[in-house]
Amino acid sequence: MDKTQLRRSLLKQRQSMSVAQWKQKSDRICTNLLSSPQFTQAKTVLAYFSFRQEPDLSPLLENTPTKIWGMPRCVGDSLFWHQWTPNEAVEIGCYGIPEPYANAPIISYEQVDLILIPCVACNQQGYRLGYGGGYYDRLLAAPEWANKSAIGIVFDFAYLPELPIDPWDKPLHAICTETKLVVGC
Rank of each mutant, 00 (worst) to 15 (best):
I68H: 10
Y101E: 09
S149V: 15
N123S: 05
A141R: 14
L61C: 04
Y127G: 02
K148V: 15
G184R: 08
V154W: 02
S149Q: 15
M71F: 09
L140H: 09
A102F: 10
Q125I: 04
I153P: 01
G70H: 03
P118I: 00
T64L: 13
A47I: 02
E110H: 12
L60P: 02
R7K: 11
N87W: 13
K12P: 00
S50H: 08
S58N: 14
T85H: 11
T85Q: 13
S50R: 02
L34Y: 09
C176D: 05
F155I: 04
P161K: 09
L60E: 02
G126A: 02
Y159F: 14
D169K: 01
F39S: 04
G70Y: 00
M1C: 06
S58V: 10
I153V: 15
Q41Y: 10
L34E: 11
A121R: 00
S50D: 06
E110S: 12
L46S: 06
Q83I: 09
A121E: 00
Y109E: 13
S16R: 14
P161S: 12
W84H: 14
N147D: 12
R7C: 01
L46Q: 06
D169E: 10
D166E: 15
Q24C: 14
V183F: 05
M1K: 01
S26D: 04
V45E: 05
A146M: 10
I115T: 09
G134W: 10
S58M: 14
L11P: 00
Q124L: 10
R128P: 01
I29Q: 04
L57H: 01
I165W: 03
N87H: 15
R28L: 15
L10N: 01
P55F: 09
T85N: 08
P143E: 13
E91K: 09
E144F: 05
L140F: 11
G134V: 11
N63E: 12
V120I: 10
H173K: 09
N32L: 10
G96D: 07
F80V: 13
Q5S: 15
S149T: 15
P72A: 09
E178A: 08
Q5C: 13
L163A: 06
I151N: 00
K170Q: 15
W145K: 04
D137Q: 08
L57Q: 01
K148N: 06
G152D: 03
Y95P: 04
L33I: 08
Q5R: 11
P143D: 11
P72S: 12
E162R: 12
G132E: 07
T31G: 08
L11G: 00
N63T: 13
Y95G: 00
Y131G: 07
T179M: 07
I115P: 03
V120E: 01
G152A: 12
E110Q: 11
E178H: 12
P164W: 05
K148Q: 13
N103E: 14
Y95R: 06
S9T: 01
L181Q: 07
T64G: 00
